[in-house]
Design a protein around this nucleic acid. Structure first.
Lengths: 182, 182
DNA sequence: ATGTACATGTAATCGGTTACATGATTGC
DNA sequence: GCAATCATGTAACCGATTACATGTACAT
C-alpha cells in the first residue's frame, strides 16, 4: 500500500490535480516510482475518503473542470509514520536484463538491439531530467541552492534519477563493446 | 506475465530445483528482478504444464527429495520471442525515495537515518555481488574471460548490479553531505 | 481534418504479496 | 536445545495493469 504514500509525498510542495500528479509520476519521480493515471485517480479518491487529502473543484471555461487536491494534517501524520518505518530494498523489474541473462543461448544480435534501444531511451530520459535540474536550480550553483532553497527533496530525487540514467548509459556502452569484441 | 520469462532465462545455463531458482532470484539477479519462493514454485508448475520446462524427481537420502527443472525447446522458442519484443523502461519502486521527496516537510533526521541504512544495505549487497564476480571470472581478467567464456549473460548482469549498488552508495554519501551542510 | 493536451474515471483481469502449512538434517 | 538450510507448496487478499469510456479546446 505504498502508492498511497507516493501520492502524499508528491503533494507536500503544493496542491495538484489528478492529471498533474499523473504527469509528475510519469516524468519526475518515474525512475523510483511509477503509476498509471488511472491508479492515481483511484488513489486520490481513496485518500480523499480517508481524509488524508482534501479536494476542491476548480471551474474552468476554456478547459474541462478539474479537482485540486491538497494534503491534510492527517495526511502529513501518515507520511511521517511511513518515513520512520524501516524500508526494504528497492524493487526493480527490467525485462531487458532477462534477455541479457539468456544471451548465450539466444540470438545475440537481437539482445544487442535491445541494449541499443535502451541506451537511446536513457539518453532521452537523461535530457528530460537535466532540463528539470536546470529548472530546479534556477541559475544558482549547487552550493548556493542547497543553502537557500526549502525544496531539497525534489532536487535529491532528480539527482538520483540523473545518476541512474547516466549509469544505465555507461553500462549499455560497456556491454555493447564487450559484445562487439567477441 | 514476465516472471515466466525470468524463470526460463534463469534455466538456460542448466537445470535447477525450485529452491535453487528462488535463491538465484534472491541474490544474483535481484537488482533487476525479484520473486518470492512461492511465486517461483507456482510459476514452475505453470511452465511445466505448458511444456516450457520439464521436471524430474531426484530422490535424496539425507535431504528432502527435490524436482529438477530443465528448459525445453518450446521454452527456448518462447524466450527467443520474448527477447525480440520491444522492452519498456524498467519498473522501479523505492520507498526511500518517497521519504526523500517529502524531506522538506518531514523530520529530516528520520530521512537521513533511512539514507544511512540504505548505504549499509548497498555495501553488503555490493560485497555479495563482487564475490559473485570473482567466482564468475575465476581468476581470469575481463578481456580473457570475455574471449573464452560461453556464459557472458550472468557476467553482464552481475556487472550491472555492481554498478547500480556503487551508484546507490555514491548518491547516499552525496545526499548525506548535502543534508549535513545545510 | 487530425492530433495533442487537458481532464476524469469504471470494470475486468492478472500478477504479486502475505499468511499459513509441513518436515528432515546439519551445525553451534 | 535452537537456528539455519534444504525442500515444497496452498489460499486469501490486495495492488497494478489493461481495456473501455467520454468530451472540449487549440494548433497544424
Amino acid at each position: 500500500m505504498a502508492l498511497r504514500h507516493a501520492v502524499l509525498a508528491a503533494l507536500v510542495h503544493g496542491e495538484a490535480s489528478g492529471y498533474e500528479l499523473a504527469k509528475r509520476f510519469e516524468l519526475g519521480v518515474a525512475n523510483f516510482w511509477h503509476a498509471k493515471p488511472q491508479q492515481v485517480y483511484a488513489e486520490l479518491a481513496r485518500l480523499s475518503e480517508a481524509g488524508l487529502v482534501q479536494g476542491r473543484e476548480v471551474i474552468q471555461e476554456s478547459r474541462p473542470n478539474k479537482r485540486m487536491f491538497a494534503i491534510t494534517d492527517d495526511g502529513l501524520a501518515v507520511l511521517a509514520e511511513f518515513a520512520a518505518a524501516p524500508k526494504g530494498l528497492p524493487v526493480g523489474r527490467d525485462d531487458l536484463m532477462i534477455a541479457v541473462q539468456a544471451i548465450d543461448t539466444l540470438d545475440a544480435e537481437v539482445v544487442r538491439d535491445g541494449i541499443e534501444r535502451r541506451a537511446e531511451q536513457a539518453k532521452q530520459k537523461l535530457a528530460t531530467l537535466q532540463e528539470l535540474e536546470r529548472q530546479i536550480l534556477g541559475g544558482r550553483d549547487e552550493a548556493t541552492f542547497v543553502r537557500t532553497s526549502r525544496h531539497l527533496g525534489p532536487y535529491l530525487n532528480c539527482r538520483r534519477g540523473i545518476r541512474f540514467q547516466q549509469d544505465t548509459l555507461e553500462w549499455c556502452e560497456w556491454a555493447l563493446q564487450v559484445l562487439r569484441s567477441r
